[in-house]
Design a binder for these strands. Structure first.
Lengths: 226, 226
DNA sequence: TTTAATCTTACAAATTCTTTACAAAATGCT
DNA sequence: AGCATTTTGTAAAGAATTTGTAAGATTAAA
């Protein structure tokens, strides 16, 4: 069954929620502050997150943003005290999926958890994959070809994995931004072009004639194995 | 780009939303009542739904429930008038993903649409279709026949899909322009003729004797499967 | 603070789109 | 049929858009 990470500095709420979701058959992991929550997320395979917005030090927005750098898909439900003015637009832009105001009924939160879990399909991610003559290892953040080792950032790994998973398809700059940055490309920015240009310099043998990431004019970029 | 079906009996809101999402680069389909909305959903490949809750006859809840019997994944955003008591728990249980109260700001609704579309995996159906001996794949922007792979632009895919969906019918230059360019053909321009000419060169075996897109003199162009 | 990473801007190069022009084809009219 | 008119095909030129990427600006990290 699904594993839910609950992060709230109010121990009553955190523990109560944990008890509630356990009764519903989920597995609960609890953290009472943002930093611990982030560590727990990294050391556990979490299927859904419930984050309190107002927390000392690392707050819910910040934690959500950090988690989105690691995982752009896991559903995130944000909790807010009734009194707090909650900026849902900002929340959605940093990658939150839903917002629940305290106090909330147990029926409501369970319905929302169910709705989010129904959407997310679990996928076992491969540790390494190959793109043309390049072997990408996502645990060591390195890619190698016969005579070369290339250091990669976590963004590189995310983007390269997207190209690997969607090989043959044309990925829009939006798709790539979503994947590598964890949020939507709002205005007309050339970040992705620039990023691809730099990435090519590192991973292509001749970046003037890219063999791995090809440009598809007016649509985006494509990788294709041969 | 994603196609959004908007169902609201208030034509001002429905049309305003359509205009807004069109400006954002989405394709809008509008229905002013639940039954029409349901029909539109069935006859179009819809990526996201915006449903008003209060509608005569088939209301938003009912429509959402019906649509969920056909598709459990497509994101649904529900609209409610400020005054209405909105039962989000029921909404979530019947499969709605988000709720927006009227009146809403354009920034808010766009942020929510983006957030939902980011999550939803492209519906696998209708990603590719065949025109005569040509197989068109809209994710890789390519068409193939037995011995040939043809690169397509996004306009090509849109127009070819139109010919596929309306096979047998004669499409006016206006229809084709609307579909491929996303706006109306105002003055007398030969763009569409020129475009069809170039497209034929690429997709027809002999562009002098087109087998896929045929000319219907003084009316437009037609595709017909054999 | 300095340093590194990331993003925006700018502009040339590449590519695609639109208009124009004229010949060919289709249609209408006597 | 023959001739005039409308419609279509398409080459070619010019307009517009899109891309690659260097350089400067900004932001984040140390």
């Amino acid at each position: 069954m699904a594993r839910i990470l609950i992060v709230d500095d109010d121990r009553n709420i955190a523990d109560g929620l944990a008890q509630l979701v356990t009764l519903e058959g989920y597995e609960a992991i609890v953290a009472y502050d943002g930093q611990t929550g982030f560590d727990q997320f990294q050391s556990n395979d979490v299927d859904l997150l419930i984050l309190d917005i107002m927390m000392p030090h690392v707050d819910g927005y910040e934690l959500c943003k950090r988690i989105r750098t690691l995982d752009t898909l896991v559903p995130v439900i944000m909790l807010s005290a009734k009194s707090e003015e909650i900026d849902k637009v900002v929340g959605l832009e940093i990658g939150a999926d839903d917002f629940v105001s305290k106090p909330f009924g147990s029926r409501e939160i369970i319905a929302r958890i169910r709705a989010r879990l129904r959407k997310s399909t679990p996928s076992s991610k491969d540790q390494s994959f190959s793109l043309s003559d390049l072997m990408v290892d996502s645990t060591s953040y390195r890619a190698c070809r016969t005579d070369q080792v290339i250091e990669l950032t976590s963004r590189d790994v995310k983007v390269l994995r997207l190209f690997y998973e969607k090989q043959g398809q044309v990925l829009s700059r939006d798709d790539i931004y979503d994947c590598g940055w964890g949020r939507h490309l709002v205005f007309n920015s050339r970040v992705v072009d620039q990023y691809i240009s730099q990435l090519r310099k590192r991973i292509e043998i001749n970046s003037q004639q890219p063999q791995i990431i090809k440009t598809v004019h007016a649509i985006g970029y494509r990788y294709e194995a041969f």
